[in-house]
Write a protein that binds this DNA or RNA. Structure first.
Lengths: 205, 205
DNA sequence: ACGACATTTGTCACAAGCTGCCATTTGGCA
DNA sequence: TGCCAAATGGCAGCTTGTGACAAATGTCGT
């Protein structure tokens, strides 16, 4: 009944402050030109403590991504078991994105928009982004393997589908931002997954 | 007629020596525990000069990947224009891999095997690997767009297919190493692409 | 063979990311 | 209150990576 104690609340608070402040600074002077010391100073903690909250500067910048990945996995686990594999991932991903687009909580929405902006402006981060997704790939592959009822250590397909799915989402959202900013990202992601499901050869060789 | 001068030859020579020596050290004590200074010392150049050959430590480690990507693009450009898009990438990728497997030049083959080993032993590098592929993604997307006769800045499909293809190759080769070391990687890559072409839903939901 | 020129290399200095270690402070709880 | 565990701060140090300038080395015309 007592919920999280004062200690936990404070921790979450500085964690949030770190992400928000970091993003403010990133937007002002760019990712590379923002130092960890500056971020720490702006939140009134020592630089040493910064690295107790985030293992690296990259880590703060990609914090929204981590959250998004977690949400997608949760959404996927909640999809009915009868749903075909690709359909399930498609729906889970689109659900999460749609929640950002139409969500009431503007802090969450803005945080992810900011991340997209930052990624587009910082190639190195965009690269790190795909890498980061990969490191949580085993987790996703595990979920998929359970759905298929196979052992992910013996059957490579879950890994393949997992990595391709993450890749598709990232690429699509990236492209959306550049090419189709008027269409909701969730719709584009749906299209991309349908393309994957029916075969890349399908639309126009 | 004079070929490359002494200067160019020497440069290529130290470049090769750097990659080879770096990989030796990586194998001996691991990627993280190997410093740039050690690599430079082992090749008798100053650390400063190291960074004139490679922009980062990661860069040496992924040098074989860069070469591989270049080869795939070359192979792709050489595929007949009549070939369907996914088929063309599939064949180009499989060709390149096959050349490594059956190739006479053992240095090339071993270099890529070593890279796979290093990637498997160093998660951070594996992550960087996907990121690196992404940075050459525009190049590949350009090739695909030309094949389709579309403008890559307006049509997101080339980017999607490009990133998914690279992702598929990497994941497949990674899985091959762990799960199916007896099957040639080129065959597995073929299968993966066929799966993509006919649709991920096809084999088992 | 010689000398002028351009490229490459080494040295030094330094910023920034990141870690280990230890002392200090702060929250949780009897 | 007072004790314990966890969080924080400060410092010292390592590694990666870069800018600037001087020394060395390949190149080319004569």
């Amino acid at each position: 009944m007592t919920g999280p104690g004062l200690r936990e609340r404070k921790k979450q608070q500085t964690r949030d402050a770190l992400v928000d402040t970091a993003y403010e600074l990133f937007r002002e002077r760019g990712y590379d030109s923002t130092t960890v010391d500056e971020i720490a100073a702006a939140v009134n903690i020592s630089p040493r403590t910064f690295f107790r909250y985030f293992t690296s500067k990259e880590d703060v910048a990609l914090a929204p991504l981590d959250q998004q990945l977690t949400e997608v996995m949760t959404a996927l686990a909640a999809r009915p078991a009868a749903e075909p594999l690709v359909t399930a991932i498609r729906n889970a991903s689109a659900e999460v994105l749609r929640a950002y687009e139409t969500g009431e909580e503007p802090s969450k929405r803005n945080r992810h928009r900011s991340m997209e902006d930052l990624l587009a402006a910082t190639p190195a981060l965009m690269a790190a982004c795909l890498g980061r997704s990969t490191s949580r790939l085993d987790e996703l592959a595990g979920l998929l393997a359970r759905r298929l009822g196979v052992d992910p250590r013996l059957d490579p397909r879950p890994h393949l589908v997992a990595s391709i799915s993450l890749c598709a989402v990232r690429t699509t959202v990236g492209a959306w931002r550049e090419i189709h900013p008027e269409t909701p990202a969730s719709d584009l992601v749906r299209q991309a997954f349908d393309l994957l499901a029916t075969g890349l050869n399908h639309p126009a060789n």
